[in-house]
Amino acid sequence: MTVTAPDRPALAERLSRWANDHRKWLFSSPAIAFTVLLIAFPIGWTLYLSFTNSFGSVRAPFDFVGLENYATALTDTTRFWPAVVRTLVFTLAALAFELAAGMAIALLLWRPFKTQALVRVIVLLPFVATPVAIAMMWRLIFDPNIGFANQMLGWIGIPPQPWFSSPETALPTLIFVDVWEFTPMIAIVLLAGLTSLSDELQEAARIDGANAWQRFWYVTLPLLRPVVLVAIMLRAIDALKTFDLLYAVKGQGGGSFHEAETLNIYAYTLSFQYNNFGLASAVLILFFLMVLISMWLLTLRRKETPSRLAPLGPAPPPRAAAAGGAGGIARSVS
């Protein structure tokens, strides 16, 4: 008894000192361990399955087949390559429109006006609303028979369009909905970037006689470049992986003619409709490589930013240039 009493505080103190000395890993390892466990194992497993003929049931035995799945996928011009093309078309088209519209909206909301707070909330809504609800809403609006879209076309004398329901118009209509849904996100990120710019250079350019367009093109845009690149990066990651909208509108296989089948939808269909886990895994590994390569290309673009800054000369980088090394957070994983 006389021994333990003084010992206890000593032990507590030692523990406390140990915890403080090791707080770096004590604090970070649970989150890192969780993430690594949930990524490293699945990726390893997917890589392993991609070399096998796993099929049918998750418990069924399977054999090692080498690179056969990769050969099958890479020589498949009916499903795989069209899906690659659709993934790229969808992502690039959506990104281009979202950037242009997002920039326009950001500039519009930049300068203060009376109902600004309200308008900003409204612009936020499409981005936060549940994607499945958005998909259902647009399915009703774009319904060929009863949809409001065709009624509006009717008022200006344009014949009704099939929208989602025809192989030719499905993908463009889906791109439109994606643009509606995610332009707000781009606008909000760009608006934050604009707000962080100082007014001095704008003033200087105005005094030098630059008109509004010139001020935008030669002053604002170059300064905003790092933020624009972050916005592109964040959006590209998610656009490549778009699932909710495509699946909720067109279902498995991207419609009867696979007209909306991107790589993500194709991999999902292979896995959970055809239960062809081997081929699905090979497609997923190829898809993952594609996402990584896209990110790598974008990072390269960002690294050359400083040397290409403002045509006005070596302008000081804006506060925003510290743009989060690894970017911020946008849409959830899809």
């Binding site: 949930l38 699945p42 993500n264 991999a267 896995s271 699905a280 590994i285 996402v291 970017g327 957070i329």
Partner: peptide
Amino acid sequence: LVVLLARIIPGISLLVPWYF
């Protein structure tokens, strides 16, 4: 960067192994 990888990775490549 490891934690960020969780955002880049296509969710479906995790779903199949998780489901297994």
